[in-house]
Simulated scan of single mutants.
Amino acid sequence: MRGAILRTLIDLANADPRVVLLTGDLGFLVVEAFARAFPDRFWNVGVAEQDMIGIATGMAEAGFLPFTYSIATFSTLRPYEFVRNGPVHHRLPVRILGVGGGFEYGSAGPTHHGLEDVAVMRALPGLTVVAPADHEQAAAALLGTWDLPGPVYLRLGKDDHSVVAGLDGRFALGRAERVRTGTEGTVLVALGPIAREAVAAAELLSLRGLDCSVTVVACVSPAPVEDLLDAFRDAHTVVTVEAHSIVGGLGSLVSEVVAEHGLGCRVVRCGVRSGPDGVGGSESFLNVRHGLDRAGIARTVEGAAAERPAMGSPRGEGVVRSW
């Protein structure tokens, strides 16, 4: 997605001289094209993410449209107070690009794993939070949010080639996208690039007689409440899938929607539910370890189906489970 975002950002900068880019000493082989095209609108502020957000806040106050670029955890956790007190409290158009959500920087270790960013950023009122599922949707998301009057957080993956089947790059602010329609009453809801594994899990399950629907949530805030209600209308089980902590992210958002609207479906959260344990490895290895590969997601859905109470049982109403 990084390449798609930077190509789109260059197009926007060609059309709007207010667009500037700041990086926290990261993004090499990605940001150079912007730096060459606009050398007077690009700054490497060094390993100083708090300063980067502070500088971007001042530039936004002065009338610019600043984009900041760093790894997801460094873009959100390290400068969190600066994000809150600056662009959020002052409603300024700072765009925070956080790359490598989940385990995408797997071998770099837990300091580089973006597992809490969605939770902390969606807690800030007025901050638009978007986590595209593939590079096509990322480009559409940038075009759909770049000129909003308030701040935006874009959680980006590194893959510039793979796409989510059925998504076709669709994005709309405050909306979710259904990419697969099933007949069984189980709905998978996925956030970010892990949606590819969710779709693959649904296809695997269909071969086993469990035909699931799949909805992709890219816009976390504002939440796609109406689309989620529509997706859950006839569902008995909703399984959320995210390369993120099960606390505060998509699973929490879906649970809030189900609880606040009195829906009768059960919510099962599929995500990261433990902290660092000294075991490291690649993104794919860590996804498998946390049940976020297609086989692991399928096992979670099958486990939920096996535990589903008989129709009419009170145990089936408003239950939230974590796997």
Rank of each mutant, 00 (worst) to 15 (best):
M1A: 06
I5W: 03
R7W: 10
L9T: 08
D11G: 15
D11R: 15
D11Y: 09
L12A: 14
N14Q: 13
R18W: 06
L22E: 02
D25C: 14
V30G: 01
A33K: 11
A37G: 10
R41Q: 09
R41L: 10
V45N: 08
V47I: 15
A48T: 11
E49A: 07
Q50L: 02
I55D: 03
G58T: 11
E61Q: 12
L65N: 11
P66L: 09
E81I: 03
G86P: 01
V88I: 05
R95F: 01
I96A: 01
L97F: 01
G100Q: 12
G102Y: 03
G109T: 10
H112A: 10
E116W: 10
M121W: 03
R122K: 13
G126C: 00
V130P: 03
E136M: 15
A140P: 07
P149S: 12
G150C: 02
G157T: 06
D168S: 14
D168Q: 15
R170L: 11
F171D: 08
R178V: 04
V187L: 11
L188V: 00
I194D: 00
I194H: 00
E197P: 00
A198L: 03
A200N: 01
A202D: 04
L205Q: 04
L210D: 04
C212F: 02
V216D: 01
V217D: 01
P224I: 04
V225I: 15
E226H: 09
L229S: 13
D234Y: 08
V239L: 13
A243Y: 00
G251H: 04
V258I: 15
V258G: 09
C265D: 13
R269N: 08
C270R: 09
R273L: 09
P276A: 15
V279R: 13
G281R: 13
S282I: 07
V288I: 08
R294A: 09
A295I: 11
A295K: 11
A295C: 04
G296Q: 04
A298G: 01
G303V: 02
R308Q: 08
G312R: 02
R321H: 08
